[in-house]
Write a protein that binds this DNA or RNA. Structure first.
Length: 270
DNA sequence: AAATTCTCCTGAAGGC
DNA sequence: TGCCTTCAGGAGAATT
């Protein structure tokens, strides 16, 4: 599934093909995604060059001179650059047809979103309550420790809360807690600033590594030969419940936290 | 305010 | 082989 590094890789992959160009046509094949895609999308995009593409959390923000288009990949979404007139396949819900190239949005499970935010996107309800980006410097141990004061929920849920820090999904939360040796069940408010410092550093490191890896797959975002392969990063324990801990050989346990599967080592993670 | 549960959807996996 | 059931999961919305 697209995690933050995949979204960032998508951003870097599509940007050079689209910046400075205008949308000449919009094709909406299926508009019922997480939210309904506005039918009058083309009205906003018409004759307005794409100035830049930003990423906030796992949202892609396509900044046109007329306003900002938000794209969210959800669980199964992907973006691809195709030549004009590339035949569409099942789940290819949206085409933004630029001057000589097509940005195609594909999403089998339709948890994604395509929304028009207009000018002043920062004030949109989707963006204005988000916490800091995990890769910026105001995300650190001091911040986490402060934000966790008196919070009793499990730390895994805490770091997956978009108001606390953005873009840390199930995979990275699971892996970062393992690397840091923190039990995902531990109450957020009962963790020292020192351990939070380690956790914040670990999250940054894992995300940055994945983004670097993603660079090698950029070519996959161009072309019509299937969807881009999300890169397989090395996962230590995610999805490996029942197998032995790579550190101490103790069988890894699984718990459900907020309806999300969580794997941890009962010995290494306290 | 904080915590928990619900919701959208499809494809993959498991059972018989 | 095939049909049915179950489940995963991002994250906002609804509920407690």
């Amino acid at each position: 599934m697209p995690e933050l590094p995949e979204v960032e890789t998508s951003r870097r992959g599509i940007s050079p093909h689209l910046i400075g160009k205008k949308v000449e046509q919009v094709i909406l094949r299926h508009t019922q995604l997480r939210w309904k895609i506005p039918q009058d999308l083309f009205k906003h995009l018409h004759n307005a060059p794409l100035i830049s593409i930003d990423r906030r959390a796992k949202y892609l923000l396509l900044n046109f001179s007329s306003g900002t288009l938000l794209i969210h990949l959800g669980m199964s979404g992907s973006l691809r650059i195709c030549p004009l007139n590339t035949p569409h396949q099942k789940h290819d819900h949206v085409d933004l047809i630029f001057e000589n190239t097509v940005l195609r949005f594909t999403d089998p499970r339709r948890f994604g979103a395509v929304l028009w935010l207009g000018l002043n996107p920062e004030s949109s309800p989707l963006l204005n309550k988000l916490g800091p980006e995990p890769l910026c410097e105001d995300f650190n141990g001091r911040y986490l420790h402060q934000a966790a004061q008196k919070r009793k929920l499990p730390v895994k849920q805490f770091i997956m809360d978009q108001k606390v820090v953005t873009g840390v999904g199930n995979i990275y939360a699971t892996e970062a807690l393992f690397t840091t040796g923190i039990n995902p069940n531990r109450a957020a408010g009962c963790i020292s600033q020192k351990r939070y410092q380690l956790l914040a550093d670990t999250i940054k490191e894992i995300l940055q590594q994945a983004i670097q890896q993603g660079g090698t797959t950029l070519k996959d975002f161009v072309g019509s030969d299937g969807k881009p392969g999300y890169f397989q990063q090395t996962l230590h324990i995610y999805g490996k419940a029942g197998q032995n801990c790579p550190q101490c050989q103790t069988p890894l346990k699984a718990v459900k936290l907020a309806a999300r599967n969580s794997v941890y080592c009962p010995k290494c993670q306290r």
